[in-house]
Design a protein around this nucleic acid. Structure first.
Lengths: 377, 377
DNA sequence: CCTGGGATAGAAAGCGCTTTCTAAAGCGAG
DNA sequence: CTCGCTTTAGAAAGCGCTTTCTATCCCAGG
């Protein structure tokens, strides 16, 4: 049906092997031959058959990107950044496969299997992990399988897998892709352990809470994320560390002033109402993220409270809309684009793994108009 | 290296052909045999080799989704919706390849070639088209090529290709995929022309402008999008139609009250300042989309103008943050999710093409707090 | 009891590429 | 001028699956 390598070879008067070598470029071909081949490719408008070459080479040009929901800018920005590192000029022909897991661990496993089926060159996992031993073990097993098949694994914005869950980086390693460098002198030390780009959620939450404490707040509500997520726990830990450091007495009330919900607007709305019910006198509310903060703001306003005069509100993530909210939202900036880009480079092997396999990206407090000193009442 | 079909076949005591048939399910296999095979698959943890089956079957499980920028919720929502139609349960094993074109027609062509290389099952193109004959022709040619190779094409949120650019749906059609139904009695009428899910941008813009006119506005500025985009032109047309219908005299000033920019916040900011310079007495500003509207609002506020008391502002698209802006943004809702989902179903062949190949989705005016009657000055 | 036809399963020929392994030149040195 | 090395190119063997084309097997009908 379509033009094949053989057609190009015939036209250029060379063998198929030569055409393949010209196109892949990892074998010397004389200049004259090369240009003859390239001309034939042009003339015939030849398009490589990806599946065929993936079959023969045992690896494809696909890079999987697992996200909770691509429609959420938090993930959209990371995915976009990962993708930006795979532009045709930077990484010839790599394609990003975006998989919406909806935060479900099962779905995550399903997609990883699908990506393994496609012999993906790499997989970037975003979205916080679920703290469940069974899921963690299943995930680690699946990732090991992928890894053994030559797929590079990068975790972005989620903590590294627990040591004991990973283990057993087996023997099957060198049989697969490591064809070149056959004399064995080269340092075949390419670790297959997943690389992690982690966010400093604890530090960010701590600084945010310190900011509120410094403003004079003492009764601070917290609309947290799903209770089983690592991200939720880390942010909560940072928050409570700051409270404890400031005044251990504050910690006593922290439990009561915390509600859990999803990472969406309505959780923020409902959570704020619940907090108000529990503690009508609170002067500040922290939200699991910016989207939740929007919901919190809406609820507070619906209750006739002004922001920040009556209640201060802060978010997390610093998504693009946060600076434009009215009042502009105090939040913690996560360099999502930088993190995603780095994950992309790591996935493509264009950047070497950080020492220990974990790179933590800094978070930054963005103090804006939604937080102010509490009224002196 | 990995477990192959042959291994499964050996374990189940059948031939590879039988295993293949069990897994693809498009050929009768006796119940007992089938379950024996399935058990072997389980036991060996067999994962199909995607490239190999794509090679043999001449089509892959990949569906390309071209977007301007996946980090932009406008595209994120559509991509997410397309993806939601390909969940493992709905469409076994289909995977979405998201390609950021950055709005560049060249990049668009590059990605289409890459997708052709992967023998993508379908491609969904979003993002407005560029009005340039050369690009249109090149795009049409590329799409025809893809189409001939058996890839289904769906345009989502962009107008259909001009008739003359498409043309020549050649002879190469039936040679490819149309294997089954060989007796020729079946109606082999599956048109390969691209299917379109278009937005009613004209109508939306017209209704939005009518809304402002009804409120009493007469000096309405317009911060439009990139001048070469079809979407920009359509929205502008709708706007001017409304003006002309209301009072032809208004049309005279429309040119002066229009500035063009990109679809981003800073274009809105700059555009608003420029409009204010040209016409300090304007009472309303329409923006190319919601993001631009945010920039417009920021600029107006920085100039000491209140919204909507001094100047009304309206956007377009109704992205999630619009309702939460302060004041809540009047805008035109585009059912992005519905459109994307429909595009996804069309791409997967789970919904038949609309008559004429074009489905237009309705847009809806969302009148909110950012627009109000002008002050009586 | 024999036969034609439907239901199942196997054999084998690719799909189009990559990559050894091998062979033919091309070159400087002895 | 010839030998042995390097450089360049071809032959051919797969990679793992799909899908004809065939070969059984079994049953109802004659």
């Amino acid at each position: 049906m379509a033009v094949t390598l053989a057609d190009v070879a015939a036209r250029a008067g060379v063998s198929a092997a030569t055409v393949s070598r010209v196109l892949s470029g990892n074998y010397p071909v004389a200049g004259a031959t090369r240009s003859r081949v390239l001309r034939a490719v042009e003339e015939l408008e030849y398009v490589v058959n990806g599946p065929a070459s993936a079959l023969a080479a045992a690896t494809s040009d696909l890079v999987g990107v697992l996200v909770n929901d691509i429609a959420d800018p938090f993930f959209g920005i990371m995915a976009s950044a990962v993708q930006s590192e795979m532009e045709p000029e930077k990484a010839g022909g790599k394609l990003a496969v975006v998989c919406n897991t909806g935060g479900s661990p099962e779905r995550e496993l399903t997609y990883l299997t699908l990506l393994q089926r496609q012999r993906a060159a790499a997989v970037v996992l975003t979205g916080s992990a679920v703290e469940d031993e069974k899921h963690t073990a299943a995930l680690a097993a699946r990732l090991r399988r992928l890894s053994e098949a030559g797929t590079r694994i990068v975790l972005c914005g989620r903590p590294p897998l627990p040591e004991d869950a990973v283990s057993g980086r087996g023997d099957a390693l060198r049989s697969g892709t490591a064809g070149r460098d056959a004399d064995g002198t080269g340092a075949e030390d390419e670790s297959t352990a997943p690389i992690t780009v982690a966010f400093d959620n604890r530090g960010g939450a701590r600084r945010l809470t310190e900011h509120l404490l410094a403003l004079g707040h003492r009764r601070i509500g917290y609309v947290a994320g799903p209770v089983e997520r690592t991200t939720t726990r880390h942010r909560l830990e940072g928050h409570r560390t700051a409270l404890a450091d400031h005044d251990p007495a504050l910690l006593a009330d922290a439990e009561r002033l915390t509600v859990h919900g999803a990472y969406d607007r309505s959780s923020g709305y409902d959570g704020a109402l619940e907090l108000l019910r529990r503690a009508p006198d609170l002067t500040a509310v922290l939200a699991a993220n910016d989207t939740v903060a929007l919901g919190v703001c809406a609820a507070l306003r619906d209750q006739g409270l002004r922001i920040p005069e009556d209640v201060s509100v802060a978010g997390f993530d610093d998504l693009p809309f946060s600076a434009d909210a009215a009042p502009a939202l105090t939040t913690v900036r996560i360099p999502l684009h930088e993190a995603g880009a780095r994950a992309g480079r790591l996935a493509l092997g264009r950047e070497s793994a950080p020492p220990g396999g974990v790179a933590t990206v800094r978070t930054e407090l963005m103090a804006r108009a939604s937080t102010a000193p509490p009224r002196a009442d």
